Simulated assay, not measured.
Amino acid sequence: MQFSGTRVTMIGLGLFALLATALPNAVPQAEAHSSRNWSQAERSRYCSAQARRHADRKTRRTTAAGALTGAAVGSMVGSNRNAGRNAGRGALIGGAGGLVHSNARWNSYYNSYYRNCIRW
């Protein structure tokens, strides 16, 4: 028994329609997080983790920028003979400066993100 292309297509569409109508009943619907399905402690843990990631990401950039700036300035200052050593020292000093600055900003980034997360 041979099937024509049209008949195979129609059978395929029929099976697809059958699965499409049966599938929504088999899969439970997702519910957005709300006060009904999240406790206050769960929400606080979630927001704290997200705020920590956000603050870490922002402060890492500040530290890296300080190190790069320090390396650039360090390589330009001093004699050309010791440019590599001066760039290393500059990166160390700039990185330390960037780290001090970023640590001062970490709490600010964390608190701001946490407050915004808890509000929604």
Results as ranks from 00 to 15, higher is better:
I11V: 14
G12Q: 09
G14K: 02
G14E: 04
L15F: 12
L15V: 13
F16N: 08
A17N: 04
A17R: 03
A17E: 01
L18V: 11
L18S: 08
L19A: 13
L19F: 13
L19E: 10
L23K: 02
P24Y: 05
N25G: 15
N25D: 12
N25Y: 11
V27K: 03
V27N: 08
P28W: 01
Q29S: 14
Q29V: 15
A30Q: 11
E31L: 05
E31D: 09
S34P: 01
R36C: 00
R36H: 06
R36F: 02
N37A: 04
W38C: 03
Q40H: 00
A41H: 09
S44W: 11
R45S: 12
Y46E: 09
S48I: 00
A51R: 10
R52S: 14
R53F: 10
H54Q: 07
A55C: 09
K58Y: 07
K58N: 13
K58P: 04
K58M: 14
T59E: 10
R60V: 01
R60I: 02
A65M: 07
G66A: 04
G66C: 00
G66V: 05
A67Y: 12
A67M: 08
L68P: 01
G70I: 03
G70F: 00
G70H: 07
G70L: 01
V73P: 12
S75L: 11
S75N: 05
M76R: 09
G78H: 04
S79Y: 07
N80C: 01
R81C: 05
A83P: 02
G84Q: 11
R85M: 13
R85A: 12
N86G: 08
A87L: 09
A87T: 07
A87C: 06
G88R: 02
R89C: 09
G90K: 11
A91E: 11
L92H: 00
L92S: 08
L92G: 15
I93N: 04
